[in-house]
């Protein structure tokens, strides 16, 4: 029958045809072709019937149960609890960071011995910064605090910022070594 209607088999079984047929988008002529296709193919007809059943099952599925009467109140109570927890965590975080900054400044002050010298140290004293950061780094390594990753990142960033010459020298040495190895 498909041959009589001159329908290519591949086209009739393509997903596009199935999709259009399922969505009811076939023209009357195409519907006849589609029906002929289904009549000529038992597995396809069975699948088509199952597809129709699925559509019916989904369309007539029972509604999910209603939420409990106290659902809104329970949600709001849970939200308030989580908001309170978040506030406490935020303040603890701020406290720890403040503590770190204060300790570091105190250490710098102690190292510089005088308040006047402290400003110079803060803006120009790489050596003192480096000592303070190394000490902070090693003390965190020993005490293994919860904020260790944060402190290490800050220390590493500060190290990268304040030690560009050392990095440049290291990178230069590496480049020179590889270049020499390559030319041999």
């Amino acid at each position: 029958m498909l041959d009589e209607l001159k329908i290519p088999w591949d086209e009739a079984q393509s997903e596009a045809w199935w999709e259009r047929a399922a969505a009811g988008l076939l023209s009357p002529a195409e519907t006849r072709i589609w029906q002929a296709y289904l009549a000529s193919c038992d597995p396809c007809r069975r699948e088509w019937e199952a597809l129709t059943s699925v559509e019916r099952i989904l369309r007539t599925a029972p509604a999910p149960p209603r939420v409990a009467d106290d659902f809104t109140q329970a949600t709001l109570a849970r939200w308030q609890q989580s908001a309170a927890r978040a506030t406490v965590s935020r303040w603890i975080g701020i406290l720890f960071l403040t503590l770190i900054i204060v300790v570091e400044l105190a250490w710098l002050g102690h190292t510089a011995f005088s308040a006047r010298h402290l400003l110079d140290v803060l803006f120009a004293g790489r050596q003192v910064w480096w000592e303070a950061l190394t000490l902070m780094w090693s003390s965190f390594l020993v005490s293994w605090q919860a904020l260790l990753p944060v402190a290490l990142t800050i220390a590493l960033l500060a190290f990268l910022w304040y030690m560009p010459n050392g990095l440049l020298v290291t990178a230069g040495l590496l480049f020179w070594t590889r270049h020499r190895a390559g030319t041999r």
């Binding site: 997903e15 199935w18 999709e19 399922a22 969505a23 069975r46 699948e47 199952a50 597809l51 059943s53 699925v54 559509e55 099952i57 989904l58």
Partner: peptide, 20 residues
């Protein structure tokens, strides 16, 4: 979305056939 929905229906239809 249209394509995925159709494939989802087809998957479910195949399972319905298998169950039957």
């Amino acid at each position: 979305i249209k394509s995925r929905l159709f494939r989802a229906r087809r998957t479910m239809a195949r399972h319905l056939n298998q169950e039957a």
